[in-house]
């Protein structure tokens, strides 16, 4: 499987400046320090880390920001942008703790200043059968986890979205066991592909995309990539996610993209790439098999779906 550098992907028009710059650099590790308007904007993207396939094109900014699953605001993907437009995401405190030596409580605005932001272009595959290619901005989750020094008993990481029905109107609905919870095994969480995003297309995240900070786990179905996170806890036992509580038969803890394990009601063998007509084959681990298959050695992926 040949992977290409982020600089070889056809970018959006608003990306043109950056592209000119990158073409000039010619390919190795790209640093855009000093890029106008983005003081701490730095790209340390290495092609081997996941990345994209030769025929992947960036999904348009418009599609990424108008077609969203964010049930805290609306069940209608086209409506989320409107339902979330007044959502205030600054100030925003992110807490990291649990089974750790230290704990961390940091405002996300400060976080983006203290930690260098880098860009990762990842495929994003929704369990519903559509996919996008998104240029995220942020930092690997491992950088923050190392900072708090997990204890040996910490086997899992649990993430929680803000729980505030007055600010997230659909949390008044009793159809879901709010708050939104997600979880990863600690080795998944420490994997270099696992990313905390604070922006996309070089801009701050919009509320509908999970502002101000969200998880991105590119080899898992999109719902694992929890949005608008307020708390990250290191825990001993496997957390139960919101979707596992809603329907344990249909949504498992791992939820790795897998074309050979169907959703009980629909096929996962192919997907509709947003912006394209027709279908594409879905790839094992969403195309990141080389990078992550080792995490699941010896596991029956049909059983641990």
């Amino acid at each position: 499987m040949t992977k290409v550098k982020s600089s070889e992907i056809t970018p959006e028009s608003l990306y043109l400046n950056r592209r000119k710059f990158m073409v000039g650099v010619g390919g190795i590790i790209l640093s855009t320090a000093g890029f106008p308007g983005c003081d701490n904007y730095k790209t340390t993207y290495e092609p081997s880390k996941g990345g994209v396939l030769p025929d992947d094109k960036l999904t348009s900014y418009k599609d990424i920001t108008t077609y969203n699953n964010f049930y805290e605001f609306s069940l209608d993907k086209e409506d989320v942008i409107f339902a979330a437009k007044d959502f205030k995401t600054s100030p925003w405190k992110l807490e990291i703790g649990g089974l750790t030596e230290k704990s961390l409580s940091i405002d996300v605005d400060d976080l983006t200043k203290i930690y260098d932001q880098e860009e990762r272009i990842y495929r994003f595959r929704c369990v519903e059968g559509w996919s996008m290619v998104i240029p995220w901005l942020g930092l690997p989750l491992a950088r923050l986890l190392k900072e708090v020094e997990p204890l040996p008993e910490a086997k899992y990481v649990q993430f929680m979205t803000l729980h505030s029905p007055s600010r997230m109107p659909n949390q008044k609905s009793r159809s879901f066991p709010w708050p939104y919870i997600e979880g990863l095994r600690i080795d998944e969480a420490m994997h270099d592909l696992t990313f905390l995003s604070t922006g996309l297309y070089g801009k701050k995240l919009m509320p509908q995309n999970g502002a101000p900070i969200r998880l991105v786990v590119p080899w898992k179905y999109g719902f694992k990539s929890i949005k608008s996170i307020v708390r990250i806890l290191l825990v001993e036992h496997m957390p139960s996610s919101l979707w596992m509580k809603v329907n344990p038969r249909e949504y498992g803890f791992y939820s790795n993209v897998n074309p050979t394990v169907d959703h009980p009601r629909w096929s996962q063998a192919s997907e509709r790439r947003i912006g394209e007509f027709g279908r594409r084959e879905t790839l094992p681990f969403n195309g990141y098999e080389e990078d992550v298959a080792d995490l699941y050695k010896g596991m029956d992926l049909k059983k641990y779906f």
């Binding site: 418009k62 108008t66 077609y67 993907k77 086209e78 559509w130 509709r272 947003i274 912006g275 007509f277």
Partner: peptide, 9 residues
């Protein structure tokens, strides 16, 4: 171009 990001759906 008013059929959402996912026109076929």
């Amino acid at each position: 171009d008013q059929l959402t990001a996912n026109p076929i759906e």
